[in-house]
Amino acid sequence: MTTLCYAKKTCSIGIHVLMEEIGAPYDLKVVDFSKGEQKTPEYKALNPKGKVAALVRDDGSVLTEYAAIAMWLAMTNPDKKLLPSDPEGIARTIEAMDFVVGTVHMLSWRLWRRPDAYSENPDEHEQLRERGMTAMLAALDVVDAQLAGKDYLMGDFTIADTALYYTQYWAADVAGWTLPPNVQAHYERMKMRPSVQASRKLEGVA
């Protein structure tokens, strides 16, 4: 059975949503970051990157990185229509997902969340957090324009929406920021999906 290795309140919640969308049986293995379990030899043997999500597939092979896992899940479950069927639609979905993961998450949120990773000087941390917040909200403004007149990033629900969802959760529920209007509407729409509600319940996310 497929096993999702995840950590609470991290980007892996987006992959968890996809597992629920697919509806096939799967196991969950929590990686407790507060205890440093992502750095243990046991987890590093599974995923040398020491990150989540990691997907242990039925044959024992391990797949990592958000986009790779999301694409694999979509392509191996075509009946769930998590990805458009035409080349242009697929490319646009990857484009949207890559912007969220690469810019909204890695270049912006991480700066706000982990300023210590960018400077050892505590006096610089608040300025770095401000830069991260400004960058993330600016990136979400770009997404807001893309969502104009649409329920989801591609019109219909796709894997890209799960990436946007986890960054919305961070910005709105963890940081307490006000989201741009279309992004906020998308977030509310996502929270109504049974897959999101199920994953939040399983992970203990209010």
Results as ranks from 00 to 15, higher is better:
Ser61Val: 02
Val100Asp: 02
Asp156Glu: 06
Met190Glu: 05
Pro87Glu: 14
Val31Met: 15
Val143His: 00
Asp173His: 13
Ile159Ala: 09
Ala96Ile: 03
Gly60His: 08
Leu111Thr: 00
Leu82Val: 05
Thr158Tyr: 08
Ala24Leu: 15
Thr93Met: 05
Ser12Phe: 09
Gly14Ala: 14
Val142Lys: 10
Pro41Ser: 04
Pro78Asp: 15
Lys35Tyr: 08
Asp86Leu: 13
Val62Gly: 02
Ala148Leu: 12
Met133Ala: 14
Gly155Ile: 04
Pro180Asp: 11
Val52Pro: 00
Thr3Gly: 02
Ser108Gly: 11
Met106Cys: 15
Val52Leu: 09
Lys8His: 13
Ile90Asn: 03
Ser199Met: 12
Ala148Gln: 13
Ile13Ser: 00
Trp109Met: 06
Asp59Tyr: 11
Met97Gly: 05
Ile90Phe: 05
Val100Lys: 02
Pro181Trp: 12
Pro84Met: 12
Met71Glu: 09
Val196Gln: 06
Tyr43Ala: 04
Gly14Leu: 11
Lys150Glu: 13
Ala160Leu: 07
Met106Gly: 11
Thr2Arg: 08
Ala175Met: 12
Gly60Arg: 12
Ser85Leu: 09
Glu124Arg: 15
Asp116Thr: 05
Ala172His: 15
Pro122Asn: 11
Leu83Gly: 00
Asp156Asn: 15
Pro180Arg: 05
Gln38Phe: 13
Trp109Asn: 07
Ile69Ser: 01
Arg113Gly: 07
Lys44Asn: 10
Ala68Glu: 14
Asp59Val: 06
Leu107Thr: 13
Leu202Ser: 07
Asp86Glu: 10
Val52Phe: 06
Gly176Trp: 09
Leu147Arg: 01
Ala185Val: 08
